[in-house]
Design a protein around this nucleic acid. Structure first.
Length: 558
DNA sequence: GCAAGGTC
């Protein structure tokens, strides 16, 4: 039984209200504080109430609130609210009022939302909307320090220490609102058709359109290559390093070189095992990495996202919307709001969907490879035909000892690739078939669901929590298309689906100015956040800058 | 009719 922690402060607070960002946080805190679940979705102990939000329960008000209704026009742009209005979302109204009830009885609030800018906004907007004016202390700890929650509770910080994060969080909301509302209206009017524009979605669409166009530009060029079939193994022609010095006589190859070969000096066949390589242990899963891997085994992104959430709600895995690859309890100087995704139990609860089951297996496999050495073994076959060299390299993976999880490995087709060596001894005869194929240089590499998600993470487009929704929205708006893939038997594919821009999407990007489609908005936001975090500038500076930039951008587009 | 961010 864990000892409940008593929080002591300079003030003899009798009623302390802990405000968390989400239910799971409240449950964790309740355990440590010895609180029991009670009415109104709160936890209670003596002198202690623990409540939680559901992420952002308030939204910035719509433009109509500031300028009234009416058809969109350029005359009232850019809209720059003098005072920002936050409104409680309808679906959260009841719970929001409940939070207010307990806030009114508290004489100390401990803000226990996530230790980041959005957490600051989530927590402080609730306090402000309820006109809470008592003392507030801040709980601020890294998810990696799993054992130190008790310690952190006894070292609560003055709220003023995180003021800059709150200011930065507000600027993030406000700049995105200004960008989105003003540019969407402006270009919808100018282009005479709906144009939804935002810092994330427009840049994302631009990345896809640019990639598609580049992919299609290189498609015409091609070259010939040759393959030989040796038994059931396909060997590919080794292209010379410098093609100018080396011209393959394909006609000669194709016409004369099929037949029976003897493994001797004239044929020169070799079959070699490489040195086994120890593969580096994989990084623990971020949400992006997990969903990308899931997509690669045929689980659509939105399905995967839902399945991951179900796994989290059922207690099978830790909090999933994380970009950290650090495990909990790793003593390091790193700070992470959430640690990497880990399994929380050995087996799945019953009644899980097939997608959830397969994703859970992926995480278990990832954990297996973190604990065990993964060995990669490769084999290279080479054969010389008519003066040309052909080769085939295959590799397979195994773990360093006979693991009890071997069955799991088989499921993942890791061991299935292993093939018996078919070594032809000197003097053996074997049939060889030569085949010529026209290859395209750089086949159009359209984004797949996994490569797009990974690209977004690499380039910092969107966040772990919102990337899938950003992609799904482009599909809904018919700016990009998803190609449902089926295998040659018409069965659902086990590969990631392809995502391509539509004509509508390409036309939109073509018509928009570069400052809108490129990284400009992102750069402006990052610059503002940097200054805000360091306390070097204030909110109004950035809103005025953004307002001026919007004015100029709209004027130049007219 | 308009964003991005958090949450279930």
């Amino acid at each position: 039984m864990k000892q409940a922690v008593k929080v002591t402060t300079n003030h003899s607070a009798r009623n302390t209200f802990y405000l968390c960002e989400k239910p799971s946080q409240a449950r964790t805190l309740a355990k440590v504080l010895g609180a029991e679940k009670g009415r109104d979705q709160m936890h209670f102990a003596e002198g202690v109430v623990i409540g939680h939000a559901y992420g952002h329960m308030l939204n910035l008000a719509k433009p109509e609130t500031y300028i009234g209704t009416g058809p969109w026009c350029l005359d009232n742009l850019p809209i720059l609210p003098k005072t920002w209005l936050w409104q409680v979302k309808d679906e959260h109204r009841e719970h929001f009022d409940n939070l207010g009830k307990y806030l009114s009885q508290a004489d100390l609030v401990v803000l226990a939302t996530d230790p980041d800018e959005e957490g600051e906004v989530i927590g402080r907007q609730i306090l402000q909307a309820h006109n809470y004016s008592g003392e507030v202390l801040r709980l601020w700890m890294s998810a990696l320090e799993t054992e130190s929650l008790k310690k952190s509770l006894q070292n609560l910080r003055p709220l003023s220490e995180t003021d800059h994060f709150y200011q930065a969080g507000r600027v993030r909301h406000e700049m995105d609102w200004l960008f989105g509302m003003n540019l969407s209206r402006a270009f919808s009017v100018l282009l005479k058709s709906k144009a939804n524009i935002g810092r994330v979605k427009t840049r994302l669409l631009n990345e896809i359109v640019t990639n598609d166009q580049q992919a299609e530009n290189v498609i015409q060029d091609g070259y010939e290559t040759a393959y030989v079939m040796l038994g059931d193994t396909l060997l590919e022609l080794i292209q010379a390093d410098q093609p100018c010095d080396h011209i393959v006589n394909f006609k000669k190859l194709a016409g004369a070189q099929c037949g029976i070969y003897r493994n001797d000096k004239s044929c020169n066949y070799t079959d070699e095992m490489g040195v086994p390589l120890v593969t580096p242990r994989p990084l623990p899963y971020t949400l992006t990495a997990l969903l990308a891997d899931s997509a690669d085994i045929g689980i659509p992104l939105d399905e995967g996202y839902k399945a991951v959430q179900k796994l989290y709600e059922s207690g099978a895995i830790s909090y999933p919307r994380t970009n950290s690859t650090k495990l909990p309890g790793t003593s390091s100087d790193d700070f992470a709001v959430h640690h990497a995704i880990v399994t929380m139990r050995d087996d799945l609860p019953t009644g899980m969907t097939e997608e959830a089951t397969r994703i859970f297996e992926l995480i278990r496999l990832n954990e297996l490879y973190q604990r065990n050495q993964l060995i990669t073994i490769d084999r290279t076959q080479t054969i010389e035909i008519g003066g040309e060299y052909f080769s085939s390299r295959e590799e397979w993976k195994t773990i360093s000892f006979d693991s009890p999880d071997r069955a799991l490995l088989k499921n993942q087709n890791i061991l299935a690739n292993q093939k018996k060596l078919a070594i032809y001894k000197t003097g053996d005869e074997f049939p060889v078939t030569v085949r010529l194929t026209r290859e395209n240089y750089g086949k159009p590499t359209y984004f797949t669901e996994s490569s797009l998600l990974r690209m977004m993470a690499e380039k910092g487009i969107g966040t772990e929590s919102t990337r899938v929704a950003a992609i799904t929205n482009l599909i809904k708006e018919k700016l990009i298309d998803v190609t449902p893939q089926t295998d040659h038997e018409g069965l659902p594919s086990t590969q990631a689906r392809t995502l391509r821009s539509t004509k509508l999407g390409r036309d939109l990007i073509r018509k928009l100015p570069e400052v809108v489609t490129g990284q400009e908005m992102e750069a402006q936001l990052q610059q503002a956040l940097k200054e805000m975090r360091g306390g070097q500038s204030d909110e109004s500076t950035h809103l005025m800058r953004t307002d001026a930039w919007l004015t100029q951008t709209i004027r130049e587009a007219v």
